[in-house]
Write a protein that binds this DNA or RNA. Structure first.
Length: 158
DNA sequence: GCCAACGTTGGC
DNA sequence: GCCAACGTTGGC
């Protein structure tokens, strides 16, 4: 059984275009420093899981395309690097605190499914991203909501 | 830039 | 274990 996820990224830091430019090469999803998000990757991510790629902290925020999980979980190297902004002295090589997976580009939507549009879409009402105060950067998505967003992202009518 | 909502830290 | 202070996220 495939799982579905929504993963946020600030396009200034890493965008769907950055991922697309890798030409099918996978990229470590580094910098996750939240235990809940880490636990999803560590305990539930499987190779082939599908990802809604969400641009946050930009205008307009929304789902811009699709990616997929391309590796099993493994330690986040940036936590060991004192020069990285993600450095965490409490993460030791013999007991890594932060782990990640690689992701691979799947598709960029012809158009962005904006957060505002998602809020207006009745059937998406249960999505975690729409709940008040949600800040979690990785959230599970139901297959139904995933399919709906793919449909919206590929539709020409708004 | 503002600020609400959260998560983390650390003194006690 | 409590909780105030602080830092971060992220929409607006």
């Amino acid at each position: 059984m495939k799982n579905y996820w929504l993963m946020k990224s600030e396009p200034d830091a890493f965008s769907i275009e950055d991922l697309e430019r890798l030409n099918g090469k996978s990229e470590p999803w580094d910098g996750i420093r939240n235990y809940q998000a880490r636990n999803f990757m560590r305990d539930e991510f499987k190779i082939g899981d599908q990802i809604l790629f969400y641009h946050s902290n930009c205008s307009p925020p929304g789902v811009v395309g699709l990616a997929e999980v391309a590796s099993d979980p493994y330690p986040d190297e940036t936590a060991f690097d004192p020069k990285s902004k993600y450095f965490d002295p409490k993460s030791k090589r013999d007991s890594p605190r932060w782990i990640l997976v690689d992701v691979r580009f799947v598709a960029k939507f012809p158009r962005t499914v904006t957060l505002a549009e998602m809020r207006e879409t009745e059937s998406l009402g249960e999505m975690r991203i729409l709940q008040k105060g949600n800040r979690l950067s990785i959230t599970p998505v139901s297959e139904r909501d995933y399919e709906k967003i793919v449909e919206l992202g590929n539709s020409s009518t708004s």
